[in-house]
Nucleic acid binder design. Structure first.
Length: 571
DNA sequence: ACAACATGTAGCC
DNA sequence: TGGCTACCCTGTTG
């Protein structure tokens, strides 16, 4: 690693400030001593004990000390300024956490930022060096009996025993930069119109975009007033979408008019303080029974009737009282089975025909908050969950003992107040129900650019199948959805939307359509064209991307010349 | 290149 | 239980 020097200490200060080399630096945290050798320490050799600087220590990067007046001479009181390296994570000195170039250096005093275990950092984490090692063996792993196998085959005759080759949409084909005015919070493909994507944002806006006709896009901003948590369709009527929001309402909106009908309002009396404000998070539709199932931030589940548009049941307490129910999912084969997950660190399975508090069929314990929990898309017999303890968990069969997951896959997906929570999503087209997509929080240094890939994970092995990146997308992509029929991936990253396809598809399209199939990007309301998270391209330009930064160019060379290469780490 | 800031909530006491 | 408050890889603007 080429050591990068820190920003230079100010050299314009006036006397009587002493500039001294700080010999304290040769402490135990000298893992990369050469990084700091040239650094000038400004200070008076204050003997404050660095080692005692715990997390409660208060030194800032510039410590001002007013020394007691010097009684033995007429010299003015000396002000000493200490510019020691202070770690922004633990406030200790002698080391610093943060980016050095495009590589992030962890605080060595904290547990690993990836796997959360002490004793090493992300850089040396075994789950990072080789992603196939990211699987934590669960106690019951590989303990299936022959009977289990037969049972499984009878119940799941559609699961082929030979795993198909995974199709990875890893090439960016189009996108809308800053389509939303706040970060994207959810995505949903239209159930019948193949190229129509719906998106919700933190502000409450709902976007409708036909990405086959790049400019065909609409934004409705009067459906909700804050975070759109979920968008769903009722397959009986694909002209109508349902949305749940942190404004406490569930809406049913005609896509043509954008006029919403409020199915549920949990705050009928308006704002009466933050403690009483109710929000709707989890939502799914039980087509068989004509129900919209929603859940709030107080642990309760509600049934709404899609025909009469009235409340048809609830509230039922399904998670710890007062905690947020983040997600709901109806089993695709047995719609009476409901999977919920929430902030009480549990995912729970319910029979909605026999619902009462505490009547869950199974309770799946997690290390921390569960962001999402989904039944597998075809047979509904597997479960995939995402938790902010940086683990994706897989239960291989809901018909066996659910006490512990079949696998825990270490994957970076921490909570961050500025980000939409990560959710690992099944590939609905994978007949083996193995492939999942999920954005990655921590970045990787790709030839000098810090990028956050979108990961494709084989949930049967924990192996990282692919990491999808685009040199110009430097923002984190927590929201990802795979198309139910096409080989298309939709991504929500910050305020932008992106569409990816497999390389082979793009080549085929280019052969058939020529120029028309070239990459194109729309930019919304952006005066400047350069900068983080933006893509340098003219609107709808035939030339697609152009005018890239030198960094990008450098990167692109190695990217297009073969498989994605990284300067650090192997995944 | 850098600083300021917006900002929700998880987990603790 | 309610009330605080820390908050490590943000993203945007100036």
């Amino acid at each position: 690693m080429a050591p990068l020097t820190r920003a230079k200490a100010s050299s314009s200060r006036v006397a009587p400030i002493l500039i001294q080399r700080d010999s304290d630096d040769s402490d135990h945290y000298h893992s990369s001593s050469s990084d700091y050798d040239d650094e000038e320490q400004v200070g008076a050799g204050d003997s404050s004990d660095d080692e005692d600087m715990g997390t409660n220590g208060l030194p800032t990067s510039e410590e001002l000390h007013h020394e007691p007046p010097n009684t033995t001479s007429n010299a003015p009181p000396r002000i000493t300024i200490s510019l020691k390296k202070v770690c922004k994570v633990c406030k200790g000195t002698g080391h610093e956490a943060g980016f050095r170039g495009a590589t992030y250096i962890d605080c060595p005093r904290k547990p690993c930022y990836l796997c959360k275990m002490p004793g090493h950092t992300t850089m040396s984490c075994p789950h990072r060096v080789a992603m196939e090692h990211g699987v934590v063996p669960a106690p019951r792993r590989n303990t299936s009996t022959t009977l289990d196998y037969i049972f499984q085959r009878q119940l799941n005759p559609n699961i082929p025993m030979i795993k198909p080759t995974f199709v990875i949409p890893d090439q960016l084909t189009c996108g809308i930069i800053r389509f939303h005015s706040r970060r994207v919070t959810c995505l949903e493909f239209h159930p019948t119109k193949n190229s129509v994507l719906l998106s919700g944002d933190k502000k409450g806006q709902v976007g409708i975009w036909d990405y086959s006709k790049l400019h065909e896009k609409t934004v409705y901003n009067s459906i909700h007033t804050c975070i759109v948590n979920n968008i769903k369709f009722n397959t009986d009527n694909d002209g109508t979408m349902y949305a749940s929001s942190s404004d406490g309402t569930v809406s049913c909106t005609d896509l043509e008019t954008g006029v919403p009908f409020v199915l549920l309002d949990l705050n009928p009396n308006g704002w009466i303080g933050p403690a009483a404000w109710r929000m709707v998070y989890g939502m799914d539709i039980n087509t068989e029974k004509g129900l919209v199932l929603v859940a709030d931030n107080f642990g309760r589940l509600y049934f709404l009737d899609t025909r009469s548009r009235t409340r048809a049941g609830g509230p039922f307490l399904i998670h710890k009282k007062g905690t947020k129910v983040v997600g709901l999912h109806c089993n695709p084969v047995e719609p009476g089975l409901l999977l919920s997950c929430g902030n009480d660190h549990f995912a729970r399975i319910w029979d909605i025909r026999r619902l009462e508090a505490g009547s869950s069929l199974d309770n799946l314990r997690h290390g921390r908050v569960v962001n999402s929990a989904y039944f597998s898309p075809r047979t509904g017999s597997k479960i995939l969950t995402t938790s902010i303890d940086n683990r994706i968990r897989v239960w291989d069969s809901i018909f066996t003992n659910m006490e512990s997951p079949s696998r825990e896959i270490v994957h970076s997906q921490d909570f961050n107040r500025h980000l939409t929570p990560f959710r690992a999503e099944w590939d609905p087209k994978d007949p083996s129900e193995s492939l999942a997509v999920v954005g990655r929080y921590i970045s990787e240094n790709y030839d000098g650019v810090a990028l956050h890939p979108i990961d494709f994970i084989d949930t049967t092995s924990g192996k990282l199948v692919a990491e999808v990146i685009e040199p110009d997308i430097t923002t984190i992509s927590p929201v990802n959805k795979l198309h139910p029929r096409d080989d298309v991936l939709a991504t929500g990253s910050s305020r932008s939307l992106f569409i990816w396809r497999p390389k082979e598809d793009i080549e085929r399209m280019q052969e058939q359509l020529g120029k028309k199939a070239k990459e194109f990007i729309i930019r919304m309301g952006d005066k400047k064209s350069k900068g983080k998270g933006s893509i340098d391209s003219d609107d709808d330009s035939d030339l697609g991307f152009k005018g890239k930064t030198s960094k990008t160019k450098k990167y692109e060379k190695s990217y297009t010349s073969g498989k994605s290469k990284k300067s650090k780490g192997v995944c």
